[in-house]
């Protein structure tokens, strides 16, 4: 019986992240529009876009190979699996030990690796520019992320997200310099990884400024739908990650009881709304930066995270 409930809860988590992801994207878009005094698209618009894209024919470039058709599924599957492994409403889910935080970051890395390949497949210069800039950004964002993981793992004594969340929820944490540095660095990395302003603009189609959009320029129909969905899932993943590490309040412990789980779901939705609103506010209050300013931005994240790790190595009290 317990096994069935465990499976059901894990399945619920998978469905929850999949269904919430477009809503979160819609929410951020709506809030950004409101902040700019525009009406903005309805909250449910991303779902409609996805359904419409799914039903359309996929147009492939003459030169596109089999890999080009496989990659959207790969990217989607990898992102979805990664997003399902981050605790949202309840920690210690059935498969939570499948991958620790380092492995989750690496699974996302796999998704990016293949997406960057897709950019090169059609043999256009836009795909190339997107891929080459994407790997430049990721070559700094990924190590920064790893150093953040190191810093937090050294405090929590684990890289397992459930254990980390439980530790961060306990009284042992306290205010620590290294945690503050890690939070700033994680925010920068999350902004860069999700192609948000000021690193990239998810709404742009101005040729020379786009990174992510240039890379997926040749995709259409169901393939594009999957990639958009994967992008939404990734945004949800990073927000869940920040919530789980730095605001772990309300996450249900690994027990089977309806009330804590309900509280967990409600708290999770509340956290998504607040963090999504903060993202919208941040994006509207800052201008996009030149591509070659991005390494400095991410380099700052890397240095902050390295500093946080170093502090942990030097003394246990930071």
């Amino acid at each position: 019986m317990a096994v069935i409930t465990d499976f059901a809860l894990q399945g619920a988590q998978m469905l929850l992240v999949l269904l919430m992801a477009p809503l979160l994207t819609g929410l951020v878009r709506k809030m950004k529009a409101r902040l700019l005094s525009r009406q903005g698209p309805p909250l449910l618009q991303p779902y409609r876009d996805l359904l419409r894209l799914m039903r359309k024919d996929a147009v492939l470039a003459d030169n596109a190979s089999w890999l080009f058709r496989v990659i959207p599924y790969l990217v989607f599957a990898a992102t979805w699996v990664a997003a399902s492994l981050v605790p949202t409403f309840r920690s210690g889910l059935l498969f939570s030990w499948t991958a620790d935080l380092i492995a989750i970051i690496a699974v996302l890395g796999s998704a990016r690796f293949f997406l960057a390949l897709a950019g090169l497949d059609a043999g256009t210069s836009f795909g190339g520019i997107g891929s080459s800039r994407e790997v430049m950004i990721s070559s700094l964002a990924e190590p920064a992320m790893l150093m953040i993981v190191f810093a937090i793992a050294l405090i929590a004594g684990s890289t397992q997200l459930s254990t980390m969340a439980a530790f961060m929820n306990s009284a042992e944490v306290g205010l620590r310099v290294s945690l503050g540095l890690a939070l700033i660095a994680l925010t920068i990395v999350a902004v860069a990884e999700n192609a948000r302003i000021p690193v990239d603009n998810p709404a742009t189609h101005l040729e020379l400024t786009m990174v992510h959009e240039a890379m997926v320029l040749e995709y259409s129909g169901r393939h594009l739908a999957l990639i958009e969905l994967a992008a939404s899932l990734k945004l949800l993943l990073y927000i869940s990650l920040i919530a789980c590490l730095f605001a772990p309040w309300g996450i249900s412990p690994a027990i089977i009881a309806p009330l804590p789980i309900l509280i967990g779901v409600a708290a999770y939705i509340g956290k998504l709304t607040v963090l999504g609103a903060l993202l919208a506010l941040f994006e509207t209050s800052i201008a996009k930066m030149r591509v070659f300013r991005v390494p400095e931005f991410l380099g700052a994240a890397l240095m902050l995270a390295l500093l946080a790790t170093l502090l942990r190595f030097v003394s246990g009290s930071f």
């Binding site: 799914m54 024919d57 470039a61 030169n63 596109a64 059609a122 320029l217 040749e218």
Partner: peptide
């Protein structure tokens, strides 16, 4: 949908 159309690269 499982339909595929081929065309020149958009770029």
């Amino acid at each position: 949908s499982d339909k595929i159309r081929r065309g020149p690269a958009w770029g």
